[in-house]
Nucleic acid binder design. Sequence first.
RNA 1: GCCCGGAUGGCGGAAUUGGUAUACGCGCACGACUUAAAAUCGUGUUCCGAAAGGAAUGUGGGUUCGACCCCCACUCCGGGCACCA
Length: 953
Amino acid sequence: MKSYDPKKIEKKWQSVWQKSGIYTAADKSRKPKFYGLIEFPYPSGDGLHVGHVRSNTAMDIICRKRRMEGYNVLYPIGWDAFGLPTENYALKTGTPPKVVTKRNTATFRRQLQALGFSFDWSREINTTDPAYYKWTQWIFLQLWKHNLAYKKKTLINWCPKDKIGLANEEVIDGCCERCGTPVEKRQKEQWMLAITQYADRLDADLDTVDYLPEIKAQQRNWIGRSEGAEIAFSVEHADSKINVFTTRADTLFGVTYIVLAPEHDLIKILKPKILNASDVEAYISTTTKKSEIERTDIKKEKTGIELKGIKAINPATGEKIPVWIADYVLADYGTGAVMAVPAHDERDWEFAQKYALPIKEVVLPTVIDKRNPPMPGKKSVERKNVHALVRDPATGKYLGLKWKKFNWLTFPMGGIEDGENAITAAKREVEEETGFKNLKLIKVITGQARAEYFAAHKDQNRISYTTAVLLELLDHTQAPVSVEENEKYDIVWLDESKLNYEHMTHAEIGIWMHKLAVKNPAYTDEGILVNSDSFTNQTSKEARGAIARKFGKIVTTYKLRDWVFSRQRYWGEPIPLVHCKQCGWQAVPEKDLPVTLPPVKNYQPTDTGESPLAADTPAMKKWRTVQCPTCGAPATRETDTMPNWAGSSWYFLRYCDPKNKTSLANQLKLKTWQPVDWYNGGMEHVTLHLLYSRFWNKFLFDIGIAPTSEPYVKRTAHGLILASDGEKMSKSRGNVINPDHIVAQFGADTVRLYEMFMGPFNQAVSWSTEGIIGPRRFLEKVWRLQKKVRAKKVHTGKDGVFENVLQKTIKKVSDDIEAMQFNTAISSLMILTNDMEKKSEISLRAYEILLRLMAPFAPHSTEEIWHILGHKKSIHLEAWPSVDTTKIQREVVTIIVQVNGKVRGSFQTSAHSSETEATTQAQSVPSVKKWLMDKTIARVIYIPDRLINIVIT
RNA sequence: GCCCGGAUGGCGGAAUUGGUAUACGCGCACGACUUAAAAUCGUGUUCCGAAAGGAAUGUGGGUUCGACCCCCACUCCGGGCACCA
């Protein structure tokens, strides 16, 4: 037997597979189809990353298993090759992006092939190939024809370093996603795609797909669906109305002012009436000059300015309220105007506090005393109460009353009488009940709380509206306390840890403690309405709908914005439109597609931010000048290009028919392969790319091209591979692992196994240079098992006691691959291998089952052994082993014996023993006996075939 | 601040979802083979303890015959969103 030498066998099999085309997907087949997809790589100059290897191997294992299970599998590969790094490289070196791309894809192709992925290379695509981007342009034209693409002068995010407009999605913490430079705002005409028109479906249809829950959550979060109400506030002495969007219509009676975004249109209309117009203008100009980071910095203090002379009218109360502008209100969310309810919104509270605006409470926190709930049928009495929280600064303890007649522990408390406020009432109660009279007010714990309970001593239900006041003891001087009061309770001092509903009688205490703990006292939760006219005493939920319907209308808004689709760059798909002075924007006729990128000398965007295609050179002028397709007059091409999200928004469709010259893909072929059954990729793409491609697919579905409304049935995500220092791999840190090197050192099969074994697939893991030897040793062990195979070519039906282990492994590996638990699948293969190694000989049948189970993980070495065993056909065309579940059950089982929950021994017995049998046997186990001596058995818990727990007293 | 994850030996990580915690791999120690080394194989490897036994899954409580797993409170780490009204 030769020794295992991956260098000799891997190249050989790769070229055999390539020549025989065993991974080529058949457009026509009687087998069921399976479409497995990975995110096609961006062929960067750095070459393949070990992270690519991880995700590609995972889907490769799944696809290989599907083939063995009898599926017609499509596992395609291509290049998402438009984009900035290539263009920047071209800029630096003068090498045309086309050339760079060709070189990089060649490297990637070689690297991917060296890892033995079962891609159907005959379907390779490249987004920068004019034959491909012809259809990207075609799709754009369909969007344009359906009014989903429009040009709009808009404030865009501008990166001064890259000189490029960025989509909101490409701005991270106010900085450019690529280079980290703070982003500026610039006015620019941009092509936009109206993705917001699909917002509702993009959200709702998530219910129909099988994505990991966290992926759905992130998509929903990004779409930001929010149901609320739009309410119009009329402006005094003006025709204009201010529309606000709110999710809390129940707080309408608490609105004390209105705030407009500085960009709000109404400001210009109202300008003649604004008394302080010049100050207002000054404020607006300072805010628009602020950078995105400054403006959205949540920690900064809010600023604003009142529109003097303007009053809005609260439609619910008829009150005249001031109108402000402030940059904490976003122009492009909702209506760009908010109704401010400082009592119930933290931002409004902060603003009101700063500018001394009134605060009106309309929602009270409500508790029902669980220990003492209102009794149905008893009459209800309302009371206004005060609770006095008195702290002794010397000890930090709080004054409490331990009642003698009832099992109560309370604060000093009582009703607020006529002529009193909460503070005077609190001080009076403290003195009456405890005698302490020298008290300092710390604060009124803002607002009332509403509590419902049954007052047994009065046989009535109480609804109390209680204010809590925090006081501090100045000294221990005590006035005499009446005999009557003294008989009621003892004074106790309570530690802060006792201030909760478990120890104390007050149901409201949780509210007090919460309010004491937070800085911002606005009550933003739901409750019961007060001061709200006919809505008073309704719950927030009831009132929200009712008020919205009475004073406005119910609407849904989204955080999602339209997609900025223009880039002022060279290395992207030219937007296929021309502009004619007479006819306006015109589509390039379909027969003239693709609009190809002309060669240019200089890839540098102009300082005004125009694409190199707009450069003032004769060659570019010549490229730009065309005839208007409608009137024939001279017209000009659009010089903006598409973002690199464009090509990846529909590539999964092109794979179905990659060479089609007359349509983006043949309808029959699309129907054969769509939708993608399983799409795996990085978490970093689950918001943007996933959303954009779902949008394009939905649009293509609507116009009858894509066969399904959702492109992906199932979406999973892999974790990152970090360097051994736990940091991200990067050239600058010098901690990058090059797949070429490790393939050369250990072989592709070892690399594949290691990357699948190193940790849970969905979690980030650090690369370990030491750990990779484990999988290599494992492969060598499997290799050496060859010599233990008894009687080659003779199969027997079963393998005795060993059969059980074998069947369990088949089940475990099969299940684990489906759940992407590759690490435990490999672990169970190792266990089986270790078992086999301990035997003096193994059956050919058992060995071949092991090889077939391993084939998706280690395709080269298993193929080689398969042929050494005498097979002529590829192992990858063999059937996946099936489980015989009857053989998983064992006849003899080990039962664990516990005494009082602690393991004291175990015994072997036949399966399915009765409880009585098991109990008798358990009691006779020597190591158990001594624990049972002189003890009475109180109870026995028996889990059949597993465990018995004897409870003694 | 909000929403998702996560915390288990020296290290990466298992645990049938409430039933023997630490599978599998790395590392380490000792042994075999060898002139020697590498490779390979064998044995051991959570902690305390000579042993009997005890303790232990981030911390503190709870439910249970029994908790890594469920509940409550908290600490730390990672990811996403972030003035979204």
